[in-house]
Simulated scan of single mutants.
Amino acid sequence: MTAAGKISAASLIISLIFLSTQAATADDQTEELSLAVILESVSLKGIPYIWGGSNLKGMDCSGFIYTIYAERVPDLPRRSIDQYRYGTAVTTGKEEPGDLVFFNTEGWSASHVGIYLGDGRFIHAASGEKRNGIIISSLDSPYYRARYLGARRLPVSD
């Protein structure tokens, strides 16, 4: 792992520890789901981008979300545009770890989706020359800030 990777991983772990100390104000079931989703999604970092993919050989953005959430949210649709219509809208700036974040990258509605990690970062399956595969990005990057549509909070299954 590179020094930058170690710093990124260390800051993510610190964020997770901070989140776990906030239990007094968060619903336990939602917090457990958020932590499990974050840990599982980060474990997939580096898997290559494959359009239409949703397995360890490769994933697209909505396939990544579907892979992480399918057992936790059985009714979750597979496509990003349909995932954007699912769950509860979250006010911008009120995103919580585990929320889905959506972007208009193709000129039509929700064409890209990721999982909010906290601290302005999200994990997603990115395509492109330098961003190919499951990576962590910043919501504050000019590219994503200009294309941000909003977040959705998924229902917690019983």
Rank of each mutant, 00 (worst) to 15 (best):
L149T: 01
Y86W: 14
R79N: 15
F122M: 11
R72G: 03
S138F: 07
E40R: 15
F103H: 00
A26P: 01
S54P: 02
R131M: 06
I136N: 04
I115Q: 00
F64Q: 00
L56I: 14
A110V: 10
L139T: 04
S127A: 05
G128M: 09
Y143L: 05
F18Q: 14
N55S: 07
S138C: 02
I115E: 01
I123Q: 00
I50K: 01
A4S: 13
F102D: 00
A24S: 13
I14A: 14
R72L: 15
M1T: 14
F64V: 02
R79H: 12
I7W: 09
T88S: 08
R152Y: 07
G53C: 13
S138G: 03
Y144I: 02
I81M: 12
I115V: 14
G120S: 02
S41C: 08
A110S: 09
G52W: 12
Q22Y: 09
L100E: 02
L16D: 09
G53H: 08
T67N: 07
F103Y: 04
S111F: 04
K57Q: 03
N104R: 09
Y116L: 01
S80G: 05
S62H: 08
A70N: 10
G46M: 13
L39D: 08
F18T: 14
A125K: 02
P74D: 04
L76F: 03
R79S: 10
Y66G: 00
S138T: 04
I65N: 01
F103V: 06
A110Q: 11
E96L: 15
S11C: 11
I136V: 15
R72A: 12
Y148D: 01
D82A: 12
G114S: 05
F122N: 05
T30Y: 08
D119K: 07
I50A: 00
A36C: 04
E40K: 15
K94V: 04
Y143A: 05
I68C: 05
I123S: 01
S41F: 13
I17L: 15
S15N: 14
G114K: 00
S137D: 14
R147G: 05
E96C: 12
R78V: 13
A9E: 15
I65P: 00
E71R: 05
T91S: 07
S15D: 15
A23Q: 08
A36P: 01
K45L: 15
L56P: 04
H124K: 03
F102Y: 01
P97H: 11
G53Y: 08
S62R: 08
P48S: 09
T21N: 09
I68S: 03
V42E: 07
A89S: 12
A151E: 01
I68E: 02
G87M: 13
I47H: 03
Y116M: 01
D27T: 04
S137F: 04
R85P: 04
G52P: 11
L12W: 03
S34I: 08
K6V: 11
A126T: 05
G53I: 13
V90M: 09
Y148C: 03
R153H: 13
E32Y: 06
K6M: 14
T88K: 09
L56G: 02
G63Y: 04
G63Q: 07
S138I: 03
L35S: 04
L19I: 11
N104L: 10
L39A: 13
Q22P: 05
L12N: 06
E71L: 06
T92P: 09
T105G: 07
G46W: 11
L39M: 14
C61K: 02
D60T: 06
T92D: 10
P97Q: 10
P97A: 11
